[in-house]
């Protein structure tokens, strides 16, 4: 395993009086699949959103690749290779599925005003390439036949898949997935996690929130358990499963 990718130190985030995340510290090293589990409302999504710059942390610091990212805007954090797929998909409904994918590509030369007017040759080739890559990902997600339909016409499960697909499309260093297997059929869910494992072998790192513990624990090599805004247990999946604190959280003993 390589050096630390994401380092979170004593991060808290509260809404009014509610501490959604309180004093969370964790270390994600490069390579591999990291899991985050916990009951509903335990603060998992809030933690992700804080990492991504969608919320400012009230306390604590977040480092990515050794760089403090507390004060960066979401689009800058994305630029560093830290990308997210939302729990509730946020698609661009009137744009096609393919356009949704292409939007996620990082470092597209055609993304600036002047290039789009004057350097069309340069990025048109990139478009061809990226579209090919997008089609490959859509193929895995069984969405390829819908590539040209508006994203607004997708079913709930398909929306979720596209959300994950966009994350993969961006070729991030670390991809945060918020319940990627929620609302899609179990077989496809397994298949997605197999895809994730393949990608992680190629060097991409994952940090995944998932309620379907049976799938996650098969693939993750390290799991954090969150409850009431705090990390209560962490360890290898098999260790966590034996930890009484884990059962306490889930059974509310």
């Amino acid at each position: 395993m390589q050096e630390t990718l994401l380092k979170i130190r004593e991060v808290s985030k509260h809404f009014g009086g509610v501490y959604a995340v309180s004093g969370v510290s964790l270390n994600i090293k490069g390579g591999g699949i990291w899991g985050l589990v916990g009951p509903n409302g335990s603060g998992k999504t809030t933690l992700f959103n804080t990492i991504l710059g969608l919320h400012r942390p009230d306390e604590g610091d977040i480092y990515f690749n050794g760089k403090c990212i507390n004060r960066l805007a979401p689009h800058q954090i994305y630029g560093l290779g830290l990308v997210n797929a939302f729990q509730i998909p946020r698609l661009f409904s009137r744009l096609s599925v393919l356009d949704n994918m292409l939007l996620a590509a990082r470092g597209h030369q055609g993304d600036t005003l002047l290039n789009s007017l004057f350097l069309r040759k340069g990025w048109q080739e990139q478009e061809v390439e990226l579209a090919g890559k997008a089609m490959e990902i859509l193929e895995t997600l069984e969405l390829v036949h819908l590539a040209l339909s508006p994203a607004g016409e997708l079913s709930g499960g398909q929306r979720k898949l596209l959300e994950v697909g966009r994350g993969v499309m961006s070729s991030p260093t670390l991809l945060l997935l918020d319940e990627p297997a929620a609302g899609i059929n179990p077989n496809l869910g397994k298949k997605i996690f197999q895809g994730i494992e393949d990608l992680s072998q190629e060097g991409l790192s994952f940090f995944i929130i998932e309620h379907r513990l049976e799938i996650l624990f098969d693939f993750a090599h390290w799991v954090y358990v969150m409850d009431k805004g705090k990390i209560v247990v962490e360890g290898k999946p098999e260790e966590v499963l034996e930890d009484p604190a884990f059962f306490e959280v889930y059974l509310g003993v």
Binding site: H75, N84, L91, F92, D111
Partner: peptide
């Protein structure tokens, strides 16, 4: 369509 999602995908609103 969705400025938050666009920001999260690197587009500075």
């Amino acid at each position: 369509e969705d400025e938050v999602a666009a920001e999260a995908l690197g587009k500075s609103e």
